[in-house]
Design a protein around this nucleic acid. Structure first.
Length: 480
RNA sequence: CGCGGGGUGGAGCAGCGGCAGCUCGCGUGGCUCAUAACCACGAGGUCGCAGGUUCGAGUCCUGCCCCCGCAACCA
């Protein structure tokens, strides 16, 4: 049995979950469910990233300890996986003791690539953070919020020898050993790597940021949160000694958003190479979602909680919209209008109605007896190709192609006329074909719309129609 | 000269050298098994602008315009 390990990125707990991360969970979930359907042994992991200065600040504002604050937000992400019917096997938090301990083990194992150095940067004492060269220039050297000049200060940090690994990472990407999809993202990161990677600081002084994992052997430093967060992908498997790690690493697929590609396609592979570990087989980079054409932002007030959509349309409608109507390789737009259109036309009218008209005819003409259901015969090559390339939108296009084909078939064969003409044999054949087509459609939907797939299978699988309680995708309820 | 993505009928997209295509929406017709659902046909595009290459260009090249992201210590 092959092993399949898939991860999402772990979101930072400085804000409530929004639809962008919900989509990422869906992508990974489809990969996981498809692998299970193939018979693979699967581990699917997600979780939350909880250390760092921002979390400490946020917690302080709310008069909570960082841990208590993280507990609250992390719980919301865990809830989100329930709401979305995500089939993750693990949910790691970077504040888990196991992660903290194993992160320190990694640090020690990377010792040869870590050195102490000085970080020099522009600092605003009002803001207590560093700013980039470009930002400083853009503000003419004066912090706009505190109206005082940026100071150039030095800070002692540990650095990781990222610069040493560029060529190896490049080779792995170019050979396909470490596959990055889509190709534009692959090209993008290759360009960055070819320019040369600088070493990165991987720790901060503890007196500046205390909410982090201590650096082994140096009580004055904590690990830079991003460095440590990346390690979750192996600590969750029990790096270095636990059997899951030995069996499931390297990851089959890692799903991330386009904003963090550098971390996952440059820094992370360098860490792995430093540890002498193989790189993930596939890195799938998705785009961003806008709402009504605008970037999601709190100041615009257009943040939509996934639950809001799920409560109104149901979890499979949510899954359907984001998997099919947000382009898998690009940015996409959510709007209530587009969601409603997809729900009514595609889910209710095309698929839902195909199920109910088929079930109704079998019940009416044959007392629910389906008879021998022929093996599905539709070519699924395109579907499988799309799935392998993480083109979830295209894969669903294929399924709807079949659904439309079924509706055409029904109109051509006109079973109601066969019934009137008492052409029982032909009628039986046609209706059994319809049931078979729907069972195949259900099979293809398993990774995408698990509940819907199960419902359709429930109706036809037994050879006798077992009518649904109500309908798939009821339309009136959608408007409440 | 920072980097990248994109501009194709009302909307969302595909096509990336050989008669401009798909879904939704719109119009007309058909059907009645079905969630007023389904099926067929039709209207609608100077493929961002301007040059060039070619027998032939959304499709290749050059320049320009417009939109959207990202710009290394912020996790």
């Amino acid at each position: 049995m092959s092993k399949y390990y898939v991860t999402t990125s772990i979101p930072y707990v400085n804000a409530d979950p929004h639809i962008g991360f919900a989509m990422e969970l869906l992508y990974a979930d489809v990969l996981a469910r498809a692998a299970r359907q193939r018979g693979d042994d699967v581990i699917f992991s997600t979780g939350t990233d909880e250390h760092g200065g921002k979390i400490a600040e946020k917690a302080a504002e709310l008069k909570l300890t960082p841990k208590a604050y993280s507990d609250q937000i992390s719980a919301k992400f865990a809830e989100l996986t329930e709401e979305l019917n995500i089939s993750n096997d693990r949910f790691i938090r970077t504040t888990d003791k196991g992660h903290e301990q194993r992160a320190q083990v990694v640090w020690k194992a990377l010792k040869k690539d870590i050195y102490k150095g000085k970080y020099t940067g522009w600092y605003c004492t009002g803001e207590e953070t560093f700013f980039t060269e470009t930002e400083v220039k853009a503000n003419n050297g004066v912090c706009p919020y505190h109206e005082r000049p940026y100071e150039q200060i030095e800070e002692e940090n540990y650095f990781f020898k990222l610069s040493a690994y560029g060529p190896k990472i490049q080779a792995a990407i170019e050979s396909g050993e470490f596959e990055i999809v889509p190709e534009t993202r692959r090209n993008e990161i290759l360009a960055v790597i070819k320019k040369g990677l600088d070493d990165i600081s991987v720790s901060r002084p503890k007196d500046k940021i205390s909410w982090g994992i201590p650096v082994p052997g140096d009580s004055k430093q904590v690990m830079y949160v991003w460095f440590e967060a990346l390690l979750n992908y192996i600590t969750v498997l029990g790096y270095p000694e636990y059997k899951d790690f030995k069996e499931f690493w390297p990851a089959s697929a890692q799903v991330i958003g386009k904003d963090i590609i550098r971390f996952h396609a440059a820094i992370w592979p360098a860490i792995l190479l430093g540890l002498g570990l193989p790189l993930p087989k596939q890195l799938y980079v998705h785009g961003f979602i806008t709402v009504e054409g605008k970037k999601i932002s709190k100041s615009l007030g257009n943040v939509i909680a996934p639950k809001e959509i799920i409560d109104k349309y149901g979890v499979d409608a949510f899954r359907y919209f984001f998997l099919r109507h947000i382009p898998s390789y690009e940015d996409g737009d959510f709007s209530w209008e587009r969601l409603t259109a997809a729900y009514n036309n595609e889910l209710a009218n095309e698929l839902g109605n195909a199920v109910s008209r088929t079930a109704a005819m079998i019940t009416k003409y044959q007392n629910g007896l389906i008879g021998d259901i022929p093996e599905a015969e539709h070519d699924v090559a395109q579907y499988e190709e799309a799935l392998a390339a993480c083109r979830f939108d295209r894969a669903l296009d294929e399924v709807w192609e079949q659904t439309r084909g079924l509706n055409q078939y029904i109109d051509e064969e006109k079973p109601w006329e066969l019934a009137k003409a008492k052409d029982d044999d032909h009628l039986r054949e046609v209706l059994a074909y319809q049931a078979g087509a729907l069972l195949q459609i259900a099979e293809l939907l398993v990774p995408f719309l698990p509940d819907t797939a199960a419902k359709i299978q429930g109706v036809f699988k037994e050879g006798i129609v077992r009518p649904l309680d109500g309908t798939l995708f009821p339309k009136e309820d959608a408007d409440k």
